[in-house]
Amino acid sequence: MSVAIIPQPFAPCVSFILLRDGCVLLEKRRDDKEIDPGLVMVPGGHMEEGEHQHDTLIRELDEELGIQPRNARYVCSLLHPTDELQLLHYYLVTEWSGDIQAHEAEAVFWQPLSELDALDITPDHTAIAEALRLYGA
């Protein structure tokens, strides 16, 4: 008996909202990236097949930023139609160990929450607002 594997209509991803001193960490993606080149967004990455969200979070935080979370709280999941349809699972991280570095992105920077409206970071803006509503971080 053969089993047909039906591909998912979306790419599952985990995104991490890092907050500190009234700012959120954003990345500017490199122009040579296949997905979302040059865009400014919340950092994150694709889940590997069979990987759980929390495992993706730990792996991607290390790969992308070189840090380990001390806490991580689930915020929400949102569909994001980009170069591919992504299902983004957002987590709020307010404590971590290690020094943040841009391993994969062109740059990472702290953006004041009060100035987020100036950036086109949909659906990240929605997830950040939800993180603040749920956790008051």
Rank of each mutant, 00 (worst) to 15 (best):
V3D: 09
Q8F: 07
P9N: 13
S15E: 10
S15C: 12
F16T: 10
I17H: 04
I17Q: 01
L18Y: 04
L19N: 01
L19T: 09
D21A: 08
G22C: 03
V24M: 03
E27P: 00
E27K: 02
K28L: 03
D31Q: 01
K33V: 09
K33F: 12
E34L: 15
D36M: 02
P37K: 05
M41K: 09
M41C: 14
V42P: 03
G44K: 00
G44F: 07
G45T: 07
H46E: 13
M47H: 06
E48Y: 11
G50R: 07
H52A: 15
T56F: 11
T56Y: 07
L57M: 09
R59G: 04
L61V: 08
D62I: 13
D62W: 14
E63T: 15
L65H: 06
L65P: 02
G66E: 07
G66F: 12
G66S: 08
G66Q: 07
Q68V: 15
Q68H: 12
P69C: 09
N71Q: 11
A72C: 13
Y74W: 01
Y74E: 05
V75W: 02
V75R: 00
C76A: 10
C76W: 12
C76H: 12
S77H: 08
L79G: 14
L79H: 11
P81L: 15
T82H: 11
D83H: 12
E84K: 09
E84I: 13
E84P: 05
L85I: 10
H89L: 07
Y90S: 09
V93L: 12
T94V: 09
S97F: 13
S97M: 11
G98C: 09
D99C: 15
A102W: 00
A102C: 01
H103S: 12
H103C: 15
E104L: 15
E106I: 04
E106R: 03
A107I: 06
A107F: 05
V108I: 07
F109K: 01
W110V: 04
Q111P: 03
S114H: 00
